[in-house]
Amino acid sequence: MNQRETIELLARSEDQISPGISACVGCNVELTLRTCMQVMGPNTIFAIPPGCMGGVGVVGWDKQSGAKIPVFFPLLDNPASMLAGIKMHYDRIGEDVNVVAFAGDGASVDCGFQALSGAAERGDKIIYICYDNEGYMNTGYQRSGSTTKGAWTSTTPVSKDGRGGKKQNKKDMPMIMAMHDLPYMATMSPAFIPDMVTKLEKAKAVKSGLVYLHVYNPCVTGWGFKSDESIELCRLSVETNYAPLFEVENGKFTLNRSLDNPKPLADFIKRFKKFRHLGDEEIAALQELCDSKAERLKNLASL
């Protein structure tokens, strides 16, 4: 789809999420969720496991729903398999319904990974969207397997003299999911909405197995930046090659944006409070990892 087509699609499709949810000011996950569900449309059942979007009321409060389409709160560790059961039912009765997970990185790369990996391997026909804000933000930002190395989190604290932070590298979830031989895997960013819409449309068209979509969402509250910088920092995550936009269709890697001439990673890292204690050496190590991953991705896309 070209940019105009994606904007027209958004213009004519209805917002499926209640206007009254209580996400933080400047939250780019809310924008991501609204965009995703707008494209998924009314013929959709979706699941929001525990996490930010559950906490802000997208499933609802008491007797009121937070969405116009059927929505439910799966467990933190079973969104993929619970949705797989729903999809099996609709397949059996011959109705084509989009069955979608919108889950945080904790529910996806840690706790719910086994169920997700199993569903991917079995080819359960669900669309699994992971919003990656690098930690358990809804419980006050604890580290997850998706947290960047060096980051301050409430469970990887930093001493007054700057020691601490997460000791391990971020789990490369898009690549892990791509290696499940999915019919479609893509990364997305709320700073690139036309790209996101195009990928969501592609995801809807897949009928042969699990679709995994990974969105990189810097978190205003947890990472420490100003709410009006939200989209700018999402864009920077892509422009530095830290969260590159690419897709994998039946094993074929495609870059949606050139990885050449990226901005320095330090331009991105230095914008967040959670990285404030990192020295030049640590940032250089992150840059090196980022470069090697970009190189690998370029090689894969050249195949």
Partner: peptide
């Protein structure tokens, strides 16, 4: 027939 299953209660 949209329904929210298990809102915060």
């Amino acid at each position: 027939k949209p329904m929210a299953v298990d809102p915060l209660t």
